[in-house]
Design a protein around this nucleic acid. Sequence first.
DNA 1: CTGAAAGCGCTTACAG
DNA 2: CTGAAAGCGCTTACAG
Lengths: 338, 338
Amino acid sequence: MANIKEVALKAGVSTSTVSRALSGKIFVDPETKKKVLQAVRELNYQPNALAKGLKEGRTKTLGLIIPNLHNLLFPAAIRGITDIAKKHGYTVVLCNTDEDLETEQLYVENLRMRSVDGLIFSTATAASSHIVKLKEEGYPVVLMLRHLNEKLDSIIIDNFQGAYRATRFLIDRGYRRIAIINGTLGLDLYRQRFLGYQAALADAGLALDETLVVYDTAGWEDGYQAMLDLWERGGQPDAVVATSDPKALGVIKAVKERKLRVPEDIAVIGYDNLDMSELMDPPLTTMAQPFYEVGTKAAERVIKLINGKGKLKPVIEKLEVKLLVRGSVGYGKAFHGD
Amino acid sequence: MANIKEVALKAGVSTSTVSRALSGKIFVDPETKKKVLQAVRELNYQPNALAKGLKEGRTKTLGLIIPNLHNLLFPAAIRGITDIAKKHGYTVVLCNTDEDLETEQLYVENLRMRSVDGLIFSTATAASSHIVKLKEEGYPVVLMLRHLNEKLDSIIIDNFQGAYRATRFLIDRGYRRIAIINGTLGLDLYRQRFLGYQAALADAGLALDETLVVYDTAGWEDGYQAMLDLWERGGQPDAVVATSDPKALGVIKAVKERKLRVPEDIAVIGYDNLDMSELMDPPLTTMAQPFYEVGTKAAERVIKLINGKGKLKPVIEKLEVKLLVRGSVGYGKAFHGD
DNA sequence: CTGAAAGCGCTTACAG
DNA sequence: CTGAAAGCGCTTACAG
């Protein structure tokens, strides 16, 4: 590939002039500029971004660290990020950690070495002292979806409210034995959802029944198994709050296999609003999360940090979830009209 | 961040020695090495990858261009790529084009400027002369999944065979009016699937009935609509080959809504084997594609090209699909035992 | 308005 | 075994 020297030679000017003609930041004689652009075209010249980055001390690149590409919520957030990044002239480098802390640290080092200008994390673990350290060094960092820390800018979803509203909706519809099939309490988002569930029960004067609580599930297979466990324990739920759509679908499968009906015998509400959830049989009632918006906000925030040289105070932004009512929830025995 | 000069100063050696002590390629006195490593640790030094890349003429980075992150097949392929990349010390830069050719060209330019060592494409369009041009310049390029071109290394799936076997399976099970709900013929993969479908019919002595063919569908909504269209036209299918799982699920939804049963009234076979397909009601019979393996092979190939300086002849590798028989296909009227 | 020169942070022949 | 120097390809004060 041609370099700036060859362009300068062909255009009969100095490399400084080529650089200026291309950057547009400093005035260059129109005639000279024309010659330069002509040479650029003939040689198919493209400036070397490594050299440019080395000189300028920035690369116009954002690093994005994601725990699991298979989790259907990330693609939407990623799209939000890349859309904003593109608008501001940034490229996004995506790293998938497979929920592994060591891999995450490796990628962080790698991205730092590559002089990535800012980092967006959806981190696997709560602790992650290496992230806080990055921030302390003045490195622009934004947390997304998974966890929050008062020292770090975070774009998250109001998980407490989401679970509260889901549970409250079931109560209002007349359900009383409401089970929750939750994820790991190692993640703040699942702790918040559990708290929301508890608060909704408490506000309605219902006692928390531990036989109706399942922890540490992930994926539809776990949802299916969790439902079997609930029956095994004699939990007798008339409704289930699943903390993800796949888990909700696993629950529905279990209910159908037992020859029970959704929602007549057991109502099910999910969390995520995946593409597929609407086409299910019955269509899944769920809490829709604004993933795309999370992505755009995270990208906007990290770009702001980059431009502000990290002197801004951390901002924690919580986005609302939306209840989508579909066929998987009906009316329970305690329902007496609105 | 500390640079090599500060490390050299602290360790009381030259920058050359620091570089050598860290690279390990040239022998350095163990005592000296110890001093260097000590200084590195104290300063938390990490070599600047831009400077290194600029000097060495390579960046140990692979570019990956994907048309659509929402398409559930890509995450599996991406994981295959990143796993191999990691093993060889490469980082992967992911770009999502949203099926837009202009965006694709922009990313290609960008990745080239960044001195990415090799590129893996799953390209939106068949033409893409900019890709062929890259190859002609000696740039390591591998095509994946979407399209092939004799001049370019490609890792693809045997789509002809896949559709042939799906159709053949339905015929063997006694179905005779087999519809196909296909994607755009602009993509080679859908052309191949259509040809496989036709060949299976022809081999069984069945005529191709155009009222049973729907083109240009994508996503479950289209599958749903396509099924309505088939009935509208009076196609009267007893089985449907859908060229993706989401489309198959849309078909099943339409069948159920018409109060018909799958597979008793209409059998359905999909293509992809998404995570969710097994939990559907009924579980979806489908052609499983080895996406992870496609990813690993593509990454291995591009790394081989990088090391071979592009002097290798293009290799086109076709991987087999696997028929997974589940509840959505039963036995048709023409079935007379095995 | 333009050029010569310095420098970003590395690596690596070239000497010794 | 180690150091001084050149150079990767840019950008940008500094002169003029």
